[in-house]
Design a binder for these strands. Sequence first.
DNA 1: CCCGATCCTGAGCAAGCGCTTAGAGGTAAG
DNA 2: CTTACCTCTAAGCGCTTGCTCAGGATCGGG
Lengths: 207, 207
Amino acid sequence: MSTAEETDGENTPWSEVTPEAARRLLVAAVDAFAERGYHATTTRDIAGRAGMSPAALYIHFKTKEELLHRISRIGHDRALTLLESAADGEGSATERLDGAVRAFVRWHAERHTTARVVQYELDALAEEHRTEIVELRRRSDAAVRRIIGEGVAAGEFDVSDVPGTALAVLSLCIDVARWFNAQGSRTPDEVGELYAGLVLRMVAAGR
Amino acid sequence: MSTAEETDGENTPWSEVTPEAARRLLVAAVDAFAERGYHATTTRDIAGRAGMSPAALYIHFKTKEELLHRISRIGHDRALTLLESAADGEGSATERLDGAVRAFVRWHAERHTTARVVQYELDALAEEHRTEIVELRRRSDAAVRRIIGEGVAAGEFDVSDVPGTALAVLSLCIDVARWFNAQGSRTPDEVGELYAGLVLRMVAAGR
DNA sequence: CCCGATCCTGAGCAAGCGCTTAGAGGTAAG
DNA sequence: CTTACCTCTAAGCGCTTGCTCAGGATCGGG
């Protein structure tokens, strides 16, 4: 609904987009795409939310699809960075999996507007752009698989189907973007805490 | 992609839709909506897939949205029936949760075309239709919550946040519709088996 | 003052959209 | 045969879509 959630933070989300007018358009597009979906959003709506005329959009972006591509690319880069730095960090596999799930879930809840576009509008991308993004997703999958695999090797986890479990863990986290509501009763931190606990139970070695 | 997956089964999925021409249109709409999304699908495309002229659609359905509503209603009815009959069946909470997850996941995998429309095109429904459907979803949530709650009461499960865990279980199952691919390496049964195991670990009492 | 560069608007084009209408073709009762 | 009904099509209406283009406003350097 509002753009408030995107306008700050420890990491100034869209700072790589310049000039400022282009950033305003992009943030407006994130809101609109998340609210109604890519195909149901008109360029007039995006421009209107950014306080500009429809033609202004085409000074900064060649097409409506380029807007989606830039959003998707930046979002996937951020999500992948979160996962890989958790996977390659220090600590036991248990600690790293806990951290990865916590960070990934927090991002999907806190930035659920962006995440919704990133996770559910993949099919609207042009062929070449989609293949680029799919490669980023493959690396996300690999990061989670790596943590779980190392946990099994270290005897911390008991998992018979590592790829399947990694898929389920990612799937669980991603779906947060679909149901999370900022007005709801849970904060992003609480959801991260809950989910990290559930995931650790899914992989925990017997006892 | 194809309509093959929808054209049979133990329960003849769209048998309640008559006459046959209307059913053909509806099945075509399911395929098209699942493939490109509701808004990106044209009435000309739906009619074309069903081998009819664009105008034929309007003899059987008043609007494009009515098609989506009927698909969504029938799909949600089926999903809810699966969950409630598992929840109210016989056996321990463990057995019932296992059965519920298995059946719900199987449905999302086997009928992933339908499920994708049912789960991800809610926002495209008219206000009155969406509130009707949301009520069905509330009952799905209640069914899962009931099983888990009873398992906790019986000492079979150890769950501190019952609503949160029920939400996560449903979320995990629903997201199968997003990633499941019929050409992939896993059968619906295998996914059901894997997921039922993971869910039981999530709620299992210590040891 | 003029200059070019940058950013934006008003007006609008071609194409495609959801949906309607007039009427054709087939079937079956009277 | 006529008549009524149901199913479907050909044609197209009114509107919205993504996008374009000629030109206006603003600014810093000469």
